[in-house]
Amino acid sequence: MQRFEEKVVLVTGGGTGIGEACVAQLAAEGARVAVMGRRRELVEAVASRHGGLALAGDAADGDAMAGAVHTVLQRYGRLDVLVANAGGFGQGACADIDDDDWQRALTANLNTAFASARACLPALAAQRGAIVFVGSIAALAAGPEVCGYTTFKHALIGLSRSIARDYGPQGVRANVVCPGWVRTPMADAEMAPLMAQHGISLDQAYDLVCADVPLRRPATPQEIAEVCAFLASPAAAMVTGAVLAADGGSTIVDVPTLAFTRME
């Protein structure tokens, strides 16, 4: 399919993982892609592979985002889709997080989304475009000792719904994708404590964290990119303000009944 032929897409956090997969998916479907991230060498490599525009910068920096959008418009003349994928940080329980860590989580998970959306909205409105925010099931439920991450991923849904309400009359759609475990370099690093504690391999660690997930496996970045592409595409033309869990069924599990499953 060439759902994005002649369309221009900006992906933040595009240098690795889900962001990189989104760049690849949208470029394969005909989009002209702009790839933004803080690590210049990664961003330039991804952009080069997909014939795109590399934009090194911090998506949480309003001036950097405004400059990035200006560069995109100078190069391509339009902007149709923003995939706001930048995020991370936010470890620790509430009483254990200092002010700097809290601000770091706020910056990575919410300010990046806000600043990138704010910078892109005038151009998106001109094309009746779409925003896809990449959230997490942490936007829907709380994991252990990830207070900052959980708080600001929850807030991401509010941001998306506010944009959907205010800019819908201009034709702009805004939605959130909430992945569960995805096999990315970031998630691989999160498996390290389990691997050390149980003396298991990376694959076995993923099996362990997905033991109660109905599909019993993590997603691939490509699978999440497919969901993002759907929400950005004309096929989702009537979808806005929505939250789509792409989590293998994690968030449908009735936790109090897990003991019965373990009897089998």
Rank of each mutant, 00 (worst) to 15 (best):
T112L: 03
A59N: 04
L159S: 11
C210V: 00
M195Q: 13
N111F: 02
D247V: 14
P179I: 11
T251A: 08
T257N: 13
G77E: 11
I18Q: 08
L208Y: 15
C147M: 11
V253W: 09
K7L: 09
G241H: 10
A141K: 14
R40S: 11
V35P: 10
R40W: 03
A54M: 05
P256R: 09
T12Q: 11
P214E: 05
Q2A: 01
E44Y: 01
G92K: 03
G249E: 05
I200T: 06
V146E: 01
E145A: 15
V172P: 07
L106S: 00
Q170E: 12
S136L: 09
G52K: 03
T251E: 12
M1R: 12
L106N: 03
R128F: 04
A68Y: 07
V23S: 06
L79T: 14
A125F: 04
R217H: 13
A130Y: 02
S250C: 14
Y206E: 06
A21K: 11
A242H: 15
R216W: 06
G52C: 01
R78T: 07
L55S: 04
K153M: 10
I131K: 00
A130C: 15
D63Q: 13
T240Y: 03
Q2P: 02
Q74D: 15
A34L: 07
H50I: 00
V209W: 02
I18S: 02
A47V: 02
W102Q: 04
W181F: 10
R39Y: 04
V9L: 07
F260A: 15
S136R: 07
V172R: 06
E6T: 10
M65S: 01
V134C: 07
D99S: 11
Q204P: 00
V9Y: 07
P234M: 06
A246F: 13
P144K: 09
I137A: 00
G67W: 01
D63A: 14
D203M: 01
G148C: 05
A84T: 02
L202T: 01
P193G: 00
V33L: 10
A242I: 02
G88D: 11
V8S: 01
A64I: 02
